[in-house]
């Protein structure tokens, strides 16, 4: 018979297979990238064949897809959305705005590097990334999940002080509720 280690290994394989093929996305679409999602989901590119599905609320979601730039005001909402999601949870930064600011690099109100504020698992670059790029980003995330490397939620919990410090530096008037996530 199996010993404990082998049994948990098998359970892990099943879990990761299910997680990998069932990604429910809550798309935070205030940036211009939101327009790339309808073609990704509908008949031309059909992301549902990989098990990628939109979800209505952050409580049900697995992936937070941040499409485009984040102003300070929206960053607040994104942090709240992220903290309401249930673990394991993943973040995909979408478009060059989330990577280095993109064309808003000198703006007075947009953050320039998303991974300082939230633990990003996969970045999709481009301005705008086409639906093919979006799907390839999701497949990269699936690879990371099956290898067990997509540990954004763990990183966030362990380095919470560092993330909070960065968030507080940008969001001056910190009136965020404490979640027992």
């Amino acid at each position: 018979m199996f010993n404990d280690k082998e049994a948990s290994k098998i359970v892990d394989i099943i879990k990761n297979f299910a997680r990998k093929h069932s990604l429910w996305v809550v798309a935070y679409g205030t940036g211009c990238g939101a327009i790339e999602l309808p073609p990704t989901m509908t008949s031309r590119y059909d992301a549902e064949r990989f098990g990628i599905r939109g979800s209505a609320t952050p409580r049900q979601a697995d992936v937070l897809l941040i499409t485009g730039y984040l102003s300070v005001k929206t960053l607040k909402r994104v942090i709240r959305t992220y903290e309401q999601m249930q673990e394991p949870k993943y973040v995909i930064g979408f478009g060059s705005c989330t990577i280095n600011g993109g064309m808003y690099w000198d703006s007075y109100n947009t953050i320039k590097a998303l991974d300082r504020y939230l633990p990003v698992d996969v970045y999709i670059n481009g301005c705008m990334p086409r639906p093919e790029a979006v799907i390839s980003g999701f497949i990269k995330l699936q690879q990371l999940i099956s290898e067990g490397k997509a540990d954004g939620a763990k990183r966030y919990r362990e380095n919470l002080e560092w993330y909070r410090e960065n968030q507080r530096k940008v969001i001056k008037n910190w009136r965020m509720p404490e979640y027992n996530w």
Binding site: N100, G101, W105, D106, T110, K112, A113, R116, K169
Partner: peptide, 16 residues
């Protein structure tokens, strides 16, 4: 001064 403000407040990723 927008650029200075962005430099002071937001982290700039090296490479730009």
């Amino acid at each position: 001064n927008t650029i200075q403000f962005a430099k002071d407040n937001f982290y700039t990723r090296p490479g730009r």
